[in-house]
Design a binder for these strands. Structure first.
Lengths: 174, 174
DNA sequence: ACCAATGTAAAACGTTCGTTTTACATTGCA
DNA sequence: TGCAATGTAAAACGAACGTTTTACATTGGT
């Protein structure tokens, strides 16, 4: 495996499980199995490393949302939390940890959330055959809520959100 | 104003705006307007201070949720974000920042989220005249989702969630 | 009048932070 | 053959971390 890939994977794991600020670079060199010299050659800085973790995560997450129906969005989220666990949204968390004061991170988060919103708008439009910005906002709230409620309510939160979305969609179709 | 109160208020402001880990104790002494000796007499430690911030916030937040209807829960959240801003849930954020490894914080968060869930169950039961655990879970997801979506979608997220909840309630009543 | 409590100001504690540097080994290509 | 690139190991950088301590001022109650 490529060293940059190995580093990014190790960083994502540690930042996600223990927090961005709480993870020191020495713990990262150990987890990535490389010297700090090599780490900095590939990472640039801690903030740049986090930004790369986020854009990599955006790629993986958004790939799962390439679906045709709203219900499939929630099915995709169910798969995601089964694989990744329920620790909330790494994007919002990393931005909050840094108070929005780290440009690389703030930009990666803004890009992801814009894409996320756009995808939902598209899927809702495809399912209804027309634009419905309010319904899209409600689906976004349900997805965001499922992600964060699952932290302490478990996977039931996701299936409850899924059922709620089905009701809202059905109502909007008739 | 009491020194302990002043300290707790200053700590809540800084922890919420800049993050728990990112806020140093020197910034806290300056914001609270007291020496570090006095600060530590009242705070105990940084983690204990955060725990006190959280239980104080729990008191203020839960007081606003002493309502009779689900719609009033969302009205209360609208008021809350108008006053406190949209930076997400400080409880979930502080637990994530510490990886759940700081017992005082983890316990304060668990206590708050249990009370939050319980309150929703009660309000849903009062409105329907019967228990409905799934609907309660959906309302919880909508409240949690509104809180987090509002970070980047603004207050519209809360009113969208409010409208969605109204539909779910209406459907459950008939 | 005095003692105990409570506060300030500031230095110091040892540790850890993110990052850079020094010195050296390995490897792949011209 | 040899040089440039890429890696390791480890020490060092100054700054900042959470916390404690030293020395001193103010104040309120018996």
């Amino acid at each position: 495996m490529d060293l940059t890939t190995k580093l990014t994977a190790a960083a994502e794991r540690l930042f996600d499980r223990h927090g961005y600020m709480a993870t020191g670079m020495d713990r990262l060199t150990e987890a990535a199995g490389m010297s700090s010299r090599t780490l900095y050659k590939h990472a640039g800085s801690k903030a740049q490393l986090m930004a790369r973790v986020l854009s990599e995560r955006d790629r993986r997450f958004m790939a799962r949302l390439e679906v045709q129906t709203v219900d499939a969005l929630f099915a995709a989220l169910e798969d995601w939390v089964r694989v990744e666990g329920t620790r909330g949204c790494l994007f919002l968390r990393s931005r909050a940890e840094t108070g929005g004061d780290t440009p690389e991170i703030a930009e990666a988060v803004a890009a992801h959330k814009a894409a996320f919103h756009q995808r939902i708008v598209e899927v809702v439009a495809a399912e209804l055959g027309r634009q419905d910005p309010v319904l899209a906002e409600q689906v976004l709230v349900l997805l965001e809520g499922a992600t964060h409620a699952a932290i302490y309510r478990g996977a039931d939160a996701v299936s409850a959100a899924r059922a709620a979305a089905a009701i809202l969609i059905e109502r909007a179709q008739s």
